[in-house]
């Protein structure tokens, strides 16, 4: 029975014992349905909980940093961190660029994450040198935030000289911009001002055993590996929710 049909039946039975309690029909006949309006709101604003403080601080300090490297394996949340930073930057009216080596950006998901797409320049290089050259050009142009996502399976990292990262860091510093590097492993060496690793990630499911399950989010842990302002090693949990679990 659909929820709308159940509600229509409930209205039809006005005056009966079911109608004495709103929603009684839905709860009593075992339809396993509830009205949407009866559900508690599950909106989860990013940074609401203490677990997100580390990332929140990181993003708040974006203008003060030049090269930030976020390291993590697959499904560690680094891509979501990049989108959160992008949303934060574009929300204040800044122009941002996304260098997408793996061609992984989903504009719809980015828009849902709060990114103002009109302010985003999306660059899709095919090779690592192209990506680094594009990042340098974009920094020199004056983009306040350049997110360089090096994709899932990064190849050729060992052939990038350290001088390239120093050059990128200086390009960002000269223009008072931020380069957010999303990489599967440490790449930028000494050039990075801040290095954060995302690890111990695990998805959050609803349901047990062989019953159908629902993906509601993902929990991860951020660790500050390097920072010029704080003592490294500070760690905090981080959670992301699936859009369907946040609102409808």
């Amino acid at each position: 029975m659909r929820a709308s049909q159940a509600l229509a039946l409930e209205r039809f039975l006005q005056g009966e014992e079911f109608a004495k309690k709103p929603g009684a029909l839905l709860k009593s006949v075992g339809a396993k349905l509830v009205r949407a309006s009866d559900l508690p709101a599950q909106r989860h604003a990013f940074g609401e909980t203490a677990s997100d403080r580390l990332l929140e601080n990181l993003i708040e300090q974006l203008p003060a940093q030049t090269l930030i490297e976020v390291v993590g394996r697959r499904s560690s949340g680094r891509f979501s961190i990049g989108l959160a930073a992008m949303a934060s930057s574009t929300a204040v009216g800044e122009n941002a660029a996304w260098v997408d080596l793996g061609d992984n950006l989903d504009p719809e998901a980015a828009a849902k994450a709060g990114v103002d797409l009109a302010r985003v320049l999306w660059v899709r290089p095919r090779r690592v040198p192209e990506a680094l050259a594009a990042a340098e050009m974009l920094l020199a142009t004056g983009f306040r935030l350049v997110v360089a996502d090096l994709g899932l399976a990064f190849r050729g990292g060992r052939f990038i000289p350290d001088a390239a990262w120093v050059r990128l860091q200086r390009a960002a510093r000269d223009r008072e911009s931020t380069l957010l590097l999303l990489a599967p492993c440490r790449l930028s060496g000494i050039a990075a001002d801040v290095v954060v690793s995302a690890h111990a990630a695990h998805p959050i499911w609803r349901g047990n055993g062989r019953a159908p399950r629902l993906l509601t989010g993902m929990a991860s842990r951020l660790t500050l590996e390097k920072s010029g302002r704080e003592t490294p090693g500070r760690s905090a949990p981080l959670s992301f929710n699936v859009i369907e679990a946040v609102s409808s």
């Binding site: 997100d52 891509f79 934060s88 989903d106």
Partner: peptide
């Protein structure tokens, strides 16, 4: 400056 919505994104 404010942070994003904290959504889990999908790499396409």
């Amino acid at each position: 400056r404010r942070t994003g919505r904290g959504l889990l994104a999908v790499r396409v």
